[in-house]
Amino acid sequence: MEGVLEDWVVEDRWWTARPLRRRYFEVVLCDGRNAVVYRDLVTGGWFEQRG
């Protein structure tokens, strides 16, 4: 990863049985591609956002 372009937080759906808390990063990868990844702050897992 070359660097972080943006980072943001989504905390939503707290009123449901499956609340959502994620920290997103828009990163520039070593091969020059941009990617959006997030860490699920509830489960601790890392995911790549597609689409």
Partner: peptide
């Protein structure tokens, strides 16, 4: 506010 375009 930790929104997507903050840094820019």
């Amino acid at each position: 506010p930790f929104a997507r375009r903050d840094r820019r």
